[in-house]
Nucleic acid binder design. Structure first.
Lengths: 122, 122
DNA sequence: TAGTATTGCTACATAAAATGTAGCAATCAT
DNA sequence: ATGATTGCTACATTTTATGTAGCAATACTA
């Protein structure tokens, strides 16, 4: 199990550039989904499992360990919750929600099965 | 091959909430790395392959198709490049670079092999 | 306090995704 | 016309993720 962090070889950077370590970590299934959910408050293992709909306990456990190791989440008496770092990261992720809903989604509306090109200027 | 987009079932949302579709798409290996690189300008397939250090052509090709399908990148005479949507998304990703370097990385500095807890207040 | 429920996992088999290497057809430069 | 470069595809192997079962530990209930 490779735990991406600044300074160690990660996907995209053998020297472990911090941003590449972060993208490697977040570019694993469910990593961002977990952070997104935990922003709503601490959550137990089972609740996270339900929220994520189809995550396996194996993967959830692995991802949680990675995120704890990366200092983005912590274990508390209430289960798992975002650390200060995790909260900061969520702040950076959050705008993607608005953008996805209000900008990105719109370019799929007038899309036909035959793959109409969307209007890039919108 | 599932191509995540708003409105279709994706990881984290059977109803295809836009933000979950986006997180599913970006939460695949190299997706954000490719976008990050393309912000520096259009790039050929081979150049992307070199940049990404260890990406296989199979995966690169798959990821490129997904990103084109998602309207985030386009093919031009210079190879692949960010679409207007892709550029907007990069703007949202960019702050992660600064944060990773200046905030996140610092909590690994005083970390020992025995896993010293980092100072969450920093 | 004995029984029941819930939680946080682990084990393990199977399926899906990513890697690594080879190589080929199409275009480009000479 | 020849050689180099590009954009892939094929395919075998390895790594990741899924799905299901179940178990030990704690918390809750009668």
């Amino acid at each position: 199990m490779i735990l991406p962090k600044p300074g160690v070889a990660v996907r995209g950077s053998k020297t472990g550039q911090p941003v590449m370590a972060l993208l490697d970590l977040l570019g694993r299934s469910w990593a961002m989904g977990i952070i997104w959910h935990l922003n709503e408050g601490p959550s137990t293992f089972r609740r996270l499992q339900q929220y994520c709909e189809s995550i396996s306990p194996t993967t959830l456990n692995k991802r949680l360990k990675e995120l704890v190791h990366a200092h983005l989440i912590v274990r508390t008496k209430d289960g798992y919750s975002l650390s200060e770092y995790g909260k900061q990261l969520f702040e950076l992720l959050e705008p993607m929600g608005f953008w996805a809903r209000h900008t990105w989604a719109s370019c799929f509306n007038e899309e036909s099965e035959t793959n109409t090109v969307c209007n890039e200027k919108n």
